[in-house]
């Protein structure tokens, strides 16, 4: 038995040693790399910024993951990323968890986004009211016939609950009402668009930059989502898009230069080209 104890002791010692070797590493903030995680809606902006920034600064590696706003917040709280892309603001509990771990989230609003309510282009319906959208998602309206379309059952597509777009949609449209259980939950903006593209009876919601010509973005309360209506606040389902950092980045660091890209004309051009709405206009 003592030999086995010996073996266990040696194994433990080895594990501790290996852990100690790697564990000494600093937090995510390191000079020549920027690690970005979070929202799939903000993803295209982050990827385009990354491309632009790496061209200007060839020695810097900017990596972008798109795992959803909730995961982005978790990663920032755990010190696993430098920037958390989020399509909603941080929640109370996320803030508390962050502060408890010595992380102080600072919000940077990089763009404004309208949540486009999309249907298949073959759908004759062109506009809905916020109430009608809510009734569709609570299951009160079940057929396109009730909205002036053909007698076809509505196929509901929603984002998963980890998504910031989901939370914004819940807040701006659902008004605390519960989404009906028949809704189909998918993991990204692109996935919603694909489901709607291929399903004539479907309805879904995506960030404005994802509403391309393969789907039809509905008018909401008689307002079509576009650059002007979103930035002026006329389009009712709009929200800011955030990048969160731990504290305000050190002036002169790559992180600082990156996070302030959206303030310059190039950054705004990128945001606009991708299909989102820049915060300010040059």
């Amino acid at each position: 038995m003592s030999r086995m104890k010996h073996t266990i002791a040696i194994t433990l010692a080895a594990v501790v040693l290996v852990a100690g070797l790697f564990g000494a590493g600093p937090a995510a903030a390191q000079a020549n790399r920027i690690i970005i995680d979070g929202s799939t809606t903000v993803g295209p902006i982050a990827k385009a910024f990354a491309e632009y920034y790496m061209q200007k600064n060839p020695g810097v590696n900017v990596t972008v993951s798109e795992s959803g706003s909730g995961n982005g917040a978790k990663a920032l709280v755990n010190g696993m990323c430098d920037i958390a892309d989020m399509s909603r603001f941080m929640k109370d509990e996320e803030f508390k968890a962050a502060v408890a771990k010595g992380v102080f989230p600072v919000a940077h609003v990089v763009a404004v986004d309208g949540i486009a309510i999309i249907v298949h282009p073959s759908n004759p319906v062109t506009g809905l009211t916020v109430e009608q959208v809510r009734d569709i998602y609570t299951g009160k309206i079940t057929s396109w016939k009730q909205l002036g379309g053909p007698d076809v059952k509505i196929v509901l597509i929603s984002r998963d609950t980890n998504s910031g777009t989901y939370e914004s949609f819940e807040e701006l449209v659902m008004n605390k009402a519960k989404i009906v259980a028949t809704a189909e939950y998918v993991g990204s903006n692109g996935a919603i668009r694909q489901r709607v593209q291929s399903t004539p009876a479907a309805i879904g919601y995506v960030g404005l930059g994802f509403a391309d010509r393969t789907v039809k973005a509905l008018k909401i309360n008689n307002v079509a989502p576009d650059n002007a209506t979103v930035s002026s606040g006329v389009y009712p389902v709009a929200r800011p898009l955030y990048m969160f950092t731990n504290g305000y980045p050190k002036l002169g660091s790559h992180l600082h230069a990156f996070i302030t890209l959206y303030l310059g004309p190039k950054g705004q051009e990128i945001v606009e080209e991708i299909g989102f709405v820049p915060v300010t206009k040059y």
Partner: peptide, 30 residues
């Protein structure tokens, strides 16, 4: 990750990388 540079060997200790299986999924859906 969805986007990143090719890594030098010592960077593998601390940095994430794009990888075929993940990026296939990413390109197919996201």
């Amino acid at each position: 990750v969805s986007v990143g540079k090719p890594l030098a060997i010592w960077q593998t200790l601390s940095q994430p990388t794009p990888a075929l299986p993940w990026n296939i999924y990413n390109l197919a859906t996201e």
